[in-house]
């Protein structure tokens, strides 16, 4: 199906594209009701493949630089590519905005998603599970480590005030929460976790300059694994807006939480990992 066929159909009916396609589909056009499995980016028409990119080339702004930008766009799979904006930034650099249709197809069947591996519990259920099966308070230590002073993440999860309408972990009667705040050094965090007998350690990392969040997290997990005997390491949980889903193993932690995580999700996860009766043996040992 070509763009012009669809446009003709739209012109004929004077309808909004979506409306037109539901009521007057063109033969061969993908149905609105069954998206995928093969998709392309959407500009204003299904299948148009339109994307926008902006970038800077280390070239003075002239015809050659514009040609170079288009060459790059072509190599990125944009065909045809439309150079909509070019601006000199000083004598040595040019900034470009390019629109174009990408030739690539995306097969949504090949996309892998990390599904939530634990059931979501309400706060009463969390408290009850801890009381019934742990028989003591669940101890959680939280901190921003390294030089990260952005406590917004850890506070959203821990402070009573909470986040997204959910109360933070301090609100849970059966949890003991120690929030160490910002700029906590890793040895201090390990020491505090040991002192209070932490079941779980929550670390938040917002600053990502030069991959500080990755560096800090691997330092932290290594320190815990060195300081505690195998099987007694607290559950290590890290959160922040720029962590990749599924990077837990690479970071040496048990779970990574991304942007938009709520306290209830974290509490449910902690119960799932630390409290819920297990059908398989806990690789971290019995004394959890």
């Amino acid at each position: 199906m070509t763009r012009s066929t669809a446009q003709e159909a739209r012109d004929r009916t004077h309808q909004h594209e979506g409306e037109r396609r539901r009521e007057h589909p063109v033969t061969g056009e993908p149905s609105l009701h069954e998206p995928g499995p093969i998709v392309r980016p959407y500009g204003d028409t299904t299948g148009d493949g339109m994307v926008q990119v902006s970038f800077t080339l280390p070239l003075p702004h002239d015809k050659r630089a514009e040609g170079a930008a288009l060459q790059l766009a072509a190599k990125m799979g944009m065909s045809p590519a439309l150079l909509v904006h070019a601006k000199a930034m000083g004598p040595h650099f040019t900034f470009f905005v390019v629109y174009g249709s990408v030739t690539h197809l995306v097969d949504v069947r090949e996309v892998q998603v990390v599904e939530r591996e634990f059931p979501l519990l309400g706060s009463a259920e969390v408290n009850q599970a801890i009381r019934a099966q742990l028989g003591r308070k669940l101890v959680v230590v939280g901190a921003c480590i390294g030089t990260d002073a952005h406590t917004v993440g850890i506070d959203a999860i821990l402070n009573i005030k909470g986040f997204a309408g959910e109360k933070g972990l301090e609100y849970y009667r059966e949890m003991k929460v120690v929030n160490l705040g910002a700029q906590v050094l890793v040895p201090e965090l390990v020491e505090s976790a040991r002192e209070v007998g932490a079941d779980a350690v929550l670390v938040s990392q917002v600053v990502t300059q030069k991959d500080a969040h990755i560096h800090n997290t691997t330092t932290m997990s290594a320190a815990f694994r060195e300081a505690f005997p195998a099987g007694e390491v607290p559950l290590l949980v890290v959160g922040g807006p720029r962590f990749e889903e599924g990077s837990a193993a690479a970071l040496g932690v048990d779970r990574v939480f991304g942007r938009g995580t709520t306290p209830g999700e974290v509490a449910s996860y902690l119960v799932h990992e630390l409290v819920a009766p297990r059908t398989t043996r806990d690789p971290r040992g019995e004394q959890r």
Binding site: S54, F55, T56, K87, M89, F93, F95, T208, Q209, K210
Partner: peptide, 13 residues
Amino acid sequence: EAVVTPWLSDRDL
């Protein structure tokens, strides 16, 4: 902000 350390183009914009 909160994405990358500023690029040349970010500063210019």
